[in-house]
């Protein structure tokens, strides 16, 4: 009921230059702080690895924020066939895909960074590919409703006309091909970003925990996995919810006008992940 009313306000989509610049400056200050903590020996591993870890965590968060904007989510109206998209919450659907990717990425972590990241990205995309397919099967074969977008006249990929396939009194329904592709790309970025955060934190803790006085071979790895896993999940949720706030709950995919708001979400993710990432790294700080 609230999702129907959640139309974008007059200037809700506007980019905010001043706060964005402040946010970027704050994020840079935090990165510099991390650099000095690393060179002062408070964070284990030295200045450059610490810098690299935090920068890649920020990159991962930016990828997640960008990816969330691709995921076609219609919320409550979609469950009634009143609006196109997947009938669930955007933050949790994006997180579901991202964590499915994280599962694959964490599994492949020992095969090197490249394979792990690719595996994470594919894992997220695979989850979305199957989910989006089943959504369309459910609409077409279960309910006899063809897919139609309410925001564009033509599907930008296939060129199919949309308006005639929209039933009366609705904003469209199902997942047109552009939304499907958007969902897969969203899962790809989500899985990639989540895995990047996880792997960076895992490597950092594997260095940091022994320096803190934890000894005992493979048990430490388990502890590092536990810490990096819960932090990656926590940060994923924070970024996904902030991005969901940015698109006010529903979006059709990359062709939706709301998609143009993504720079704001990326700026938000950069600062949020700089704060959360630095605090997460300080867990193994030497005082």
């Amino acid at each position: 009921m609230s999702a129907i009313a959640a139309k974008p306000g007059a200037n809700a989509g506007a980019f905010q230059p001043v706060p964005s610049v402040i946010a970027i400056v704050l994020a840079i200050i935090l990165v510099v702080v991390a650099y000095f903590l690393g060179s002062a020996g408070i964070l284990a591993g030295g200045a450059m690895p610490v810098l690299q870890t935090l920068c890649l965590i920020i990159l991962g968060a930016a990828l997640i924020a960008f990816g969330v904007h691709f995921v076609p989510v219609g919320g409550a109206p979609a469950a009634m066939g009143q609006a196109p998209g997947i009938a669930t919450g955007v933050a949790m659907l994006a997180t579901g895909a991202g964590l499915a990717g994280l599962f694959g990425g964490a599994w492949a972590a020992e095969l090197g960074l490249g394979v792990a990241l690719a595996s994470g990205a594919i894992g997220g995309a695979l989850m979305m590919a199957i989910t989006c397919l089943m959504v369309n099967i459910s609409y077409v074969f279960g309910m006899g409703i063809p897919a139609a977008s309410g925001k564009v006249l033509k599907d930008p990929i296939t060129g199919d006309l949309q308006a005639a396939y929209k039933s009366q009194g609705t904003e469209g329904h199902g997942l047109p091909f552009i939304s499907y592709v958007g969902g897969v790309i969203g899962g790809l970025f989500g899985g990639l970003g989540g895995t990047l955060i996880y792997i960076e934190l895992l490597n950092f803790y594997n260095v940091g925990l022994p320096a803190l006085g934890f000894v005992g071979a493979e048990g430490i790895n388990m502890l590092a996995v536990g810490l990096a896993g819960i932090f990656a999940i926590g940060m994923f949720l924070v970024i996904a919810v902030l991005s969901a706030y940015n698109i006010t709950g529903t979006i059709e995919g990359p062709h939706d006008p709301k998609f143009k708001r993504f720079p704001r979400a990326i700026v938000a993710a950069i600062l949020a992940s700089a704060v959360c990432g630095l605090v997460a790294m300080l867990v193994v700080a030497l005082f």
Binding site: A76, A78, A79, M80, G81, Q82, I86, A87, T88, M92, L93, G96, A97, M127, I130, T131, C132, M134, V135, S138, Y139, G142, M143, G144, I145, S167, Q168, G169, T170, G172, H173
Partner: peptide
């Protein structure tokens, strides 16, 4: 996520609004 994405429209549109036209979204 999988259960809600796939199952929600079928419950929401098809069952709750069984009195509405088949093959069209709920106005």
């Amino acid at each position: 996520a999988a259960g809600s994405a796939t199952g929600n429209p079928y419950y929401g549109k098809e069952r709750q609004y069984q009195n509405q036209k088949f093959g069209a979204g709920v106005p």
